[in-house]
Design a protein around this nucleic acid. Sequence first.
DNA 1: AACAATCGCAACCGCAGTCCC
DNA 2: AGGGACTGCGGTTGCGATTGT
Length: 239
Amino acid sequence: MARTPGRDKNGMKKGTWTPEEDKKLRAYVSRYGYWNWRKLPKYAGLSRCGKSCRLRWMNYLRPDIKRGNYTKEEEDTIIRLQGLLGNKWSAIASHLPGRTDNEVKNHWHTNLRKRLSQNTSLTSPQEATITENRSCDLEVGPKNMSETSPNNIFDFPINCPMPPQIVEGFASLHLSSSSRETSLSRCIEAVDFSNTECEASCDTYIAESSGSFWTEPFITDNNIESWLSLDESSLDFFY
DNA sequence: AACAATCGCAACCGCAGTCCC
DNA sequence: AGGGACTGCGGTTGCGATTGT
């Protein structure tokens, strides 16, 4: 698991951190905070580069780190946010208290993605399409909108209970301002908000989406929270 | 028991964004 | 304005642990 200790070209130590190094770093940061990661190792008595110290602190030594198994709720959150934001691990981790971006990323690559693809192979072709579209690695929405054909502006699954705010967020993330409006309306047409709640919010959304709308932040915490609070059945495909 | 394959995750690397002079 | 220093992020790698043969 750990890497072989070594030295970089500047003579800085690399590889696995020893308990002594952890102790020094923890003691220093606890007492003085991290005011400058580059200079910190020198003052903390560590023969490490600042980057390595920062990583070690952020991913391992921080007192608020939660370690151990992921709960179903945490996995739900990761899946939803990964589908929504793509591989924005830092943003995803910010919604999981105590979890780090590195940990979330590792968990995704080693567990969730695998389980997702296993489930895909067990489901019908139509369901598989939906499943694939919910995973970023399997392309949730185009990574590069310029590569997307006009009629396939979003690869959102039909019948996916995707709130309009989320669609809007995706549009803003991926489209240039000049093409947003056209593409977004096409996208909204393409998505079947099959339940009445979605339909109603979609109407409201379209009515409101004018004027200064595009200048507003496209994905707010409220957007994300509402997306996260969707009925758990929307993740049935996964479990 | 020995070896190979796979898994899990800590750590590294390169790049982009931000800040400051 | 622009250039260097620094930070933060996401992708990738390395290697011990675990599992399978």
